[in-house]
Simulated assay, not measured.
Amino acid sequence: MHIKRFPAVLAALLCLATLSACEDGKKPAPAGSAAAPASSASPAAGTSPAVPAGLAEAQRYVQKYVPCEDMSTDPRDRRLPRTGLTTVGKWSVTERGVCSDRTEGAELIFYMASDMKEFQAGYKKHVQEKRAGDENYGLFSRVFVGKNFAVTPTGPKAALALSRSDLRILTCHPSFWAPKGYKQEKALVDYCVLSDFVHAEDGTGSPNFETPTDPAGGTGGPEKPGQPAQGSLGLPSAAGMAELKKLVHPHTVDCTTMSTASEDVAVESIDYRPAVSGDPRTLGITQRAVCGNTGGAQRAHDLNWLDVVGDMTTLQRRAKAAQQEDLKDGRLSATTSRLLVGENIAVETNDESVRFGLYQLQFLALECRPGFKAPAGYRLERAKVEGCVLTNYEG
Rank of each mutant, 00 (worst) to 15 (best):
S353H: 06
L16T: 01
N304L: 05
L80F: 11
E107T: 09
D74M: 15
R382N: 07
S175D: 15
G155L: 07
D351N: 13
F6Y: 07
A159R: 06
K373A: 11
R379V: 05
V341R: 01
E381K: 04
Y137C: 07
A35E: 01
P212Q: 09
P225C: 02
K384Y: 14
D351Y: 08
Y272K: 11
G292E: 07
G395I: 08
G32V: 04
G221S: 09
G54F: 08
E185M: 15
Q324D: 03
C172I: 06
G221V: 12
H2L: 11
D134S: 10
G357K: 06
G133P: 15
L361Q: 09
M116Y: 11
V198M: 14
R5A: 04
H251G: 04
G25W: 10
R131D: 03
S42V: 01
Y393C: 02
G205L: 09
G284K: 12
L162E: 05
D254R: 07
G32D: 03
S39M: 00
G54K: 01
E243S: 09
I345C: 08
P81K: 10
P28M: 07
D271P: 09
P7A: 00
D202T: 13
V9D: 01
L160N: 03
A41I: 03
G25N: 11
Y359W: 07
D264C: 03
K246N: 01
Y61D: 01
R355L: 09
G377C: 09
E201A: 08
Y272N: 10
R379I: 01
A374V: 10
G387K: 07
T94P: 15
Q230C: 04
T18S: 14
E185A: 14
Q316T: 01
V151Y: 15
H2C: 02
Y61I: 00
P207K: 14
L194E: 04
S333A: 13
V276P: 08
A106W: 01
Y123A: 07
L19V: 02
S92D: 00
Q323V: 00
R355P: 02
E210D: 15
A31N: 05
A11S: 03
K157Q: 04
